[in-house]
């Protein structure tokens, strides 16, 4: 659409501008988080290459070693990897939108983490009435429940959040 100038005083005011303030996340950036890489134990995963398989939302991840290490318990990094993926599936404040069946969270970063765990086969399925996190392991079809005891919430000063679970 062509623009028409109603008055020219704006130009003069613009000429006076010396400082411009802008925030970054969501303003300069798209605020669309994509899970790309991670590390478990000594091992870094995620090559940065274009993924070949269909990705979960907010995930853009490729590494052929991931599946080997995750599914084969003989691999040296298997245990450390499972620990991290379970962490991603369990430690968060995401709730499931009952109607749509989608994850909702105030933090787009958390959505990326939980969707990554889902893509790796550890699917967060919501909290049961006793406040346990229900996680379905699609690799073996088993459902796991982690009783959530407490959450130390994220704030911008704390720059961290914690979940406390009962050891199953």
């Amino acid at each position: 659409m062509p623009m028409a100038a109603q008055a020219s005083n704006l130009n003069e005011e613009l000429g006076q501008v010396e400082y411009v303030f802008s925030d970054k996340t969501g303003t300069l950036t798209c605020n669309i988080m994509e899970f790309k890489k991670f590390s478990a134990g000594y091992q870094a995963y995620g090559t940065g290459e274009k993924p070949k398989k269909k990705q979960e939302e907010n995930v853009n991840f490729y590494d052929k070693n991931l599946e080997y290490d995750l599914l084969n318990n003989q691999r040296p990094n298997h245990e450390a990897l499972v620990r991290v993926v379970l962490f991603l599936a369990a430690c968060h404040t995401i709730v499931i939108d009952e109607k749509k069946g989608t994850y909702t969270s105030s933090s787009p970063d958390e959505l990326a983490l939980v969707n990554a765990a889902k893509q790796f086969g550890y699917e967060f399925q919501g909290r049961d009435p006793d406040d346990a996190m229900v996680i379905l392991n699609r690799n073996n079809g088993r459902t796991m429940k982690y009783q959530l005891l407490n959450i130390c919430e994220f704030t911008s000063t704390r720059k961290r959040m914690s979940c406390i679970f009962r050891d199953p």
Binding site: L28, T29, M33, S39, R83, V84, L113, S162
Partner: peptide, 19 residues
């Protein structure tokens, strides 16, 4: 008081592209 003596197990990296 409770978030002490932790053991590091891993890290994550998320991309938020520029508009």
């Amino acid at each position: 008081l409770i978030e002490t003596e932790l053991e590091l197990i891993g890290s994550t990296a998320i991309e938020d592209r520029l508009q």
